[in-house]
Each structure stands twice: as C-alpha cells, then as structure tokens.
Amino acid sequence: MREFNAVVFGAGGVGKSALTVRFIRNEFVENYDPTIEEEYRRTIEVDGELSWLEVLDTAGAEQFTALNEVYIKSGRGFILVFSLTQEASLQEVEHLRQQIYRIKGENSRVPIVLVGTKLDLANEREVERAALEDIAARWGVPFYETSAKRDWNVHDVFEDLVRQMRLRYPTDPHKKRKKPWGNHCLIM
C-alpha cells in the first residue's frame, strides 16, 4: 500500500481541524481549540486503490510561521483552507501558496487543493463562488466548498489530493523489495 502525507494550512479559526477530524474520525469538532500540531493517519480508498494517508493539521498560519518551512519541505501534498465566511482568510492562503512554490520550486507541480469551509453558514458568506472559481483557475488547482459540520464534500478534498499525489509521485519500480530468488519456488 502506498503512503502519502498531506499538510493542512490556513489561518487560525478557519476550520482546519474540523475538516481533518471529520475526515479521519467522521466526527465534528464543535469547540474551537487552537492547534499547535496534530498528526493523523488513516487508510483511504480512491478509485479502488487503498493508500495510507498521513495528515498534518497545523497551527494557524500566522502563529507558527517558522514551522511552515519545515512542513513544506517534508510535505508531498497541501490542503489550503480558508473560511467562506472570512474573506481575509483567503488572502492568507495566497501567501501560503507562494511560500510552497518558493520552497518546492515554481515548476514542481505541487499537489494542492483549495478548500473553503463553513459552507453551511450561507447567510454569513463573504467569499463568492465566482471569485473562488477565478482564483482556482489562475492558480491551476481544484477547489472545494465544504462543511465539516454537515459532512459536505470533505472526503472529496482528500480523494482529490491523493489522486494528485499518485500522479506526481508515481511508484518507483526500483524501490520494490525483490525476493533474492525471484518469483520461483525454492526448496532446500
């Protein structure tokens, strides 16, 4: 089974942990408790293939910016989270995206998914879908509008990222462990 790791970035209070915990445990975290760093693992089936996915839920981007560089260097895929009810949080993910490309390289085809949270709070919405479509098109990344509370589109985010990581990091046939005797039966 292939293993991938994903880093969840975004401003504080946008719903990074709620999104992650909904995906990992299928639970909704009602209370806001600022995260420093939480690491989760689970299997995910995408297109009939099982993979291990390690998800690193990070602190709000403005709180521990020094750690961001470490996370970016070790991360293979990134989920950039903002709140649909907070337009300023969308600007924060633009800074994170720039930082990812600065560290990974401009032409590195980094697996990224843009995620707007709190879709269920329609009456508080500040980020219009058309603006989001425009940004995603300019960045060349898929986007999802989600609600961890209602479990809307949460799995789609992680499945999309796994698909991107499979394409970006194909299996290396040289890394497979080979039996010293090949596929033949050995009788001693």
Rank of each mutant, 00 (worst) to 15 (best):
A6G: 04
A6C: 13
G13C: 11
E27H: 12
Y32M: 12
D33N: 13
D33P: 04
E37S: 06
E38P: 02
Y40D: 01
R41S: 14
R42S: 12
I44L: 10
I44A: 06
L56D: 03
G60Y: 14
T65G: 13
L67H: 06
N68A: 08
V70Q: 14
I72R: 01
K73V: 08
S74L: 12
I79W: 00
F82H: 15
E87S: 09
A88W: 09
S89Y: 04
V93D: 03
E94V: 07
H95T: 04
L96I: 14
I100Y: 00
G105L: 12
N107V: 08
N107I: 06
R109V: 03
P111C: 07
V113F: 05
V115Q: 03
K118C: 09
A122F: 13
A122P: 03
R125T: 08
R125G: 03
E126Y: 02
V127W: 01
A130D: 14
A131H: 13
L132Q: 01
L132S: 02
I135F: 11
A137N: 10
A137L: 08
R138P: 01
R138I: 08
P142M: 03
F143T: 01
F143E: 00
Y144M: 11
S147T: 07
K149N: 02
K149L: 06
R150L: 11
D151W: 00
V157Q: 03
R163M: 11
M165E: 04
M165Q: 07
W181H: 13
W181P: 03
M188P: 04
